[in-house]
Design a protein around this nucleic acid. Structure first.
Length: 275
DNA sequence: CGTTATGTTCGATG
DNA sequence: GCATCGAACATAAC
């Protein structure tokens, strides 16, 4: 799940249910998930503090905690290919695959889940420094990331378009599923060379990218219902064997591009240079 | 049992 | 340095 739209909805879960609650302790079920911090130090930093602010950059969720004792800072959450966060009320049990539990004084908790253990939880003193250290490109939905900035990011990239859009150091937030969706909506073949797009094509791509991400967020990205709620012309619910293009009915193609399973419509997204 | 999975990183190669 | 590819990480669902 966790691409930009999913993580944005996780952020809203924390905003809506996790801010302002005093933290009683942190339970780490599997410390391989921790990034450069011990369970002991994580607990020591957070005990008595409260979460006060969230930030998201690409697929990273950052949650600021404030005082208790000592300095505040940020908890960094990354979700790998599986995982999420859930606000769990008092008396309710933790969700499956909970790896880190932030226990609140009210008896509830915030659960960080990860089935495949590919994500990470860590601490950072400074959010901007954390983002810089990961060499992340601009966030795809940042309000300041306008069409010109988008074009600047892609202008000198000479790669297949799918590979470039999935590269977090170029633009942060897009992953396998939503890149396929964006290319479908933009009617571009995933192997299109980026350097062949003219200014108009880049403008269209920018607009499609922003719209797809916002529509996914609004329709519950990060929850199971998202594929039922997306508009009928979306590709995402049809990423399955034998499925047909929701626009023209052609059987969808499944191919490996940039090392990942890629779904597209061979008719709506013809490969440039091929008839 | 084999295959596959919404991510990232690292090493080899051209 | 850049682009590309494959493997690795780790776990479970189909």
């Amino acid at each position: 799940m966790p691409e930009l739209p999913d993580v944005e909805n996780f952020r809203r879960v924390v905003d809506g249910g996790g801010l302002g609650c005093q933290i009683a302790g942190v339970a780490v079920d599997d410390d391989r998930i921790l990034e450069s911090v011990t369970p002991r130090r994580l607990g020591a930093r957070l005990r008595g503090a409260a979460f006060v602010e969230t930030r998201r950059h690409g697929k990273h969720l950052l949650v600021r905690y404030a005082p208790g004792t000592g300095d505040g800072g940020w908890v960094t959450l990354h979700f790998g290919m599986t995982g999420g966060v859930a606000r769990v009320g008092q008396g309710e049990s933790q969700p499956p695959y909970t790896r880190v539990r932030f226990d609140f004084e009210d008896g509830g908790h915030l659960a960080y889940t990860s089935r495949r253990m590919l994500g990470h939880v860590g601490l950072a003193d400074d959010a901007d420094a954390f983002i810089r250290s990961h060499q992340l490109g601009p966030d795809a939905l940042d309000p300041g990331f306008d069409n010109d900035a988008f074009a600047d990011c892609l202008r000198d990239v000479r790669r297949e378009i799918k590979s470039a859009l999935m590269d977090q150091t170029v633009i942060a937030g897009l992953g396998n599923v939503y890149v396929d969706e964006i290319l479908f909506q933009a009617r571009l073949h995933p192997k299109t060379r980026l350097e062949t797009l003219d200014d108009k094509a880049l403008r269209d791509l920018y607009r499609v990218m922003r719209r797809v991400l916002k529509v996914a967020i609004r329709n519950g990205a990060g929850t199971e219902e998202v594929s039922k709620r997306l508009p009928s012309g979306y590709l995402l619910p049809h990423r399955t064997k034998g499925a047909r293009c929701p626009r023209c009915g052609t059987t969808l193609a499944k191919e490996t591009v940039a090392g990942r399973t890629t779904w597209y419509c061979p008719r709506c997204q013809p490969e440039p240079g091929k008839a």
